Simulated scan of single mutants.
Amino acid sequence: MEIRGAVLQECGRPGPWERSRPLAVTELDLDGPGPGELLVQLEAAGVCHSDLSVVDGNRVRPVPMLLGHEACGRVTEVGDGVTDLAVGQRVVLYFVPRCEECDACRAGGRALCSPGWAANGAGTLLSGARRLKWDGREVHHHCGVSGFATHAVVDRHSVVPVADDVPPEIGALLGCAVLTGGGAVKNAARIEPGEDVTVVGVGGVGMAAVLVALACGAGSVTVVDPLAGKRSRGLELGAAKALTPEEAVESGHKTSVVVEASGNAKAFETAVSVTAPAGRTVSVGLASPEARSSISPLALVSETRTIIGSFLGSGLPAQDIPEYADLWRAGKLPVDQLVSGTIELDDINHAMDELAAGRAMRQVIRF
């Protein structure tokens, strides 16, 4: 079938991207679902820093690639062997499929699915197949999702069903921003009620960490960011205090749980430095592969602190996404407040400029 999507032609093309246009919004051919796969008509997709890091070349991926990894839509066709989902169901797509059979999958969320991670690196679905073509050329899938498009073929292990009362833009954000930021607090740090939390870097993922920390009963939440607009927004979302990175370090600010969601080496150092003795530093930001940080091993030992890397929320999407949907439904997790704007697919290059400049938290494409 013919679909419309945003194809990345080249990683690292110089900005502003509204001018250089690395993402071509174009017609593509999409094959039908193979065994164990689904055809999903997409309703909404979020624009995330993980997409931006491929566009700007910090995370080089094979091209051409149809970007987008945070999306929600309805099943329109099921492949052979899919018996637990039906046409018409709303599903949230998430960005590392879980085969449920490898040793990593049996680790209960502590590790990423080995075949899923390998497929993401190769730009394929979990089966190793590619279902996209553009002008006769194969197009790579992004994180098994390729959500910047009107339709997607995905593996059954890349989706979680949600009830019809979950709006598409809420569902999309549950699949990455909330899954990642919330999981850093809930699963990786294992926050206890009353514990104080600091979030370093408050874009979409960082703000989601703020909201989930509050929903989990955090004592108080502090946001740390160099941009005044993000600090102000953090206070609006319920943070008790907002600091610049310099203020956080120089004031001696410390909390037992610190989440780093910036993807910046200096931000990681800031996060470690504001972690209290016996505290946990959770890093979810995707820094450049060449980035390096300097920390004191003695401080880790003498203050019995823990540093935790977290990906995919350090949990199981099939369990976590419905839990976050329940918190949203109960009014305890206002995910809608993460949405800074709704855009058209044709605006995708401009959206990357807005994200890079720190002027947007979560832009959502509506189809």
Rank of each mutant, 00 (worst) to 15 (best):
Glu10Asn: 13
Leu23Met: 07
Gly32Glu: 05
Pro35Gly: 01
Gly36His: 08
Glu37Cys: 02
Glu37Asp: 09
Leu39Asn: 00
Val40Lys: 00
Val40Asp: 01
Leu42His: 05
Glu43Ile: 08
Ala44Phe: 02
Gly46Ile: 01
Ser50Ala: 10
Asp51Glu: 15
Leu52Arg: 11
Asn58Val: 06
Val60Gln: 13
Arg61Tyr: 11
Gly68Met: 11
Arg74Asn: 09
Val75Arg: 04
Val78Gly: 00
Gly79Asn: 07
Thr83Leu: 06
Val87His: 00
Gly88Val: 14
Arg90Trp: 06
Leu93Met: 15
Val96Leu: 13
Pro97Asn: 14
Arg98Met: 13
Cys99His: 10
Cys102Tyr: 01
Ala104Val: 05
Ala104Gln: 12
Cys105Tyr: 06
Ala107Asp: 15
Ala107Asn: 15
Gly108Leu: 12
Ala111Gly: 00
Ser114Asp: 15
Ser127Cys: 13
Lys133Ala: 15
Lys133Ile: 10
Gly136Gln: 09
Cys143Gln: 14
Cys143Ser: 15
Gly144Trp: 02
Ser146Gly: 05
Gly147Ala: 11
Phe148Asp: 05
Val153Ser: 03
Asp155Arg: 08
Pro167His: 10
Gly175Leu: 09
Ala177Ile: 08
Gly181Phe: 00
Val185Thr: 03
Asn187Cys: 12
Ala188Glu: 02
Val197Phe: 00
Gly201Asn: 08
Val205Leu: 07
Val205Thr: 08
Ala208Asn: 01
Ala209Gln: 02
Leu211Phe: 05
Val212Trp: 02
Val223Trp: 10
Val224Ile: 13
Leu227Phe: 08
Ala228Ser: 14
Leu237Phe: 04
Thr244Arg: 12
Lys254Asn: 03
Thr255His: 00
Thr255Leu: 06
Ser256Gln: 13
Ser256Pro: 13
Ala261Gly: 09
Ala265Cys: 06
Ala271Gln: 12
Val272Gly: 04
Arg280Trp: 04
Arg280Ala: 07
Pro289Thr: 04
Ser293Thr: 15
Pro297Glu: 03
Ser314Asp: 15
Ala325Pro: 00
Trp328Lys: 03
Ala330Ile: 10
Gly331His: 01
Lys332Pro: 07
Pro334Ser: 14
Leu338Ala: 00
Gly341Cys: 06
Thr342Phe: 15
Asp353Asn: 14
Asp353Glu: 12
Gly358Asn: 08
Arg359Thr: 01
Ala360Glu: 05
Met361His: 01
Met361Lys: 07
Ile365Lys: 10
Arg366Asp: 10
